[in-house]
């Protein structure tokens, strides 16, 4: 599997990653070599194998649906880059 500059740009956009124009070629090379390594997976037929999502095949533990956390807004917003009146600020989205 070989990726070109356009693929890298598309993937970077999907991941919302800003990439310098000058680094794109390098990423195309290294991502291609990683995908080359990964291609070895195709040497084995897995048609009859069940996927394994958890190392011990246990199912997700559930809990009663009730509030267990207290409000810690001020504590958490103290480390935010930009807040006002208890809200997180981002650039204007709606004109």
């Amino acid at each position: 599997m070989s990726l070109g500059p356009d693929d890298v740009k598309k993937i970077a956009h999907l991941a919302r990653l800003g990439i310098n124009e000058s680094d794109i070629e390098g990423y195309a090379d290294s991502l291609s070599s990683i995908l080359g390594l990964v291609e070895d997976m195709n040497t084995v037929n897995t048609d009859d194998v069940l996927p394994m999502a958890h190392p011990q095949d246990v199912s997700q533990r559930l809990r009663v649906d009730e509030v267990t956390e207290s409000n810690q807004r001020e504590k958490f917003q103290a480390i935010a880059p930009l807040t006002e009146d208890g809200l997180y600020l981002v650039p204007q989205v709606i004109e």
Binding site: L17, G18, V93
Partner: peptide, 28 residues
């Protein structure tokens, strides 16, 4: 300059090369 720019540049400038590489392999 806008929300997308905030995401992309914060992540692009905040993460190093290997982390970006792995995020991209995963996203792909």
């Amino acid at each position: 300059k806008d929300l997308e720019d905030l995401y992309k540049r914060s992540r692009g400038e905040g993460f190093g090369a290997e982390v970006k590489r792995r995020i991209m392999v995963g996203a792909y």
